[in-house]
Amino acid sequence: MKILNLIVVVITGAILIYGTMDMPGWGDPDSPASLHVSPRYITKTMEETATPNMVTSVLADYRAYDTLGETTVIFTAGMACILLLRKRRNGHG
C-alpha cells in the first residue's frame, strides 16, 4: 500500500515537472501571464478605481465577485463548524 501511494505521488510529481519544461522562466517579464490581462490592472488602476494598491483594486473591484465568494467560504466554514461541534444542551450526550 505504501509503495502504491509512493508510486502515485512520484508519477504526479513527474507529470507536474514535465509540465514545467515549457514554462516561461521564473520572473520573466515577457511571460504571457504578465502581458495578457495584468497590464490593465497596473496601468489603469488609478484611472479606473482610484486605488494605488493594485492588489486591492483587483481584489475589491475588478474581481470583487471572487472576494464575495471568499467571504462566503469563510461563512460556510463557520456555519459548518457550528453545525458539527455545537453540543446538545439537553437530552442524551
Binding site: S34, V55, L59, E70, A77, G78
Partner: peptide, 25 residues
C-alpha cells in the same frame, strides 16, 4: 507595466488562502 509585478496571482491567492483556512477549519 514592467515596473510592477503582476497583481492578479496575489489576488487569487488571497482568496485561495481563505479557502485553505476554511477547509482546514
Amino acid at each position: 507595466t514592467s515596473a510592477y509585478i503582476n497583481p492578479l496571482p496575489h489576488v487569487l491567492m488571497l482568496t485561495a488562502i481563505v479557502v485553505m483556512v476554511a477547509t482546514l477549519g
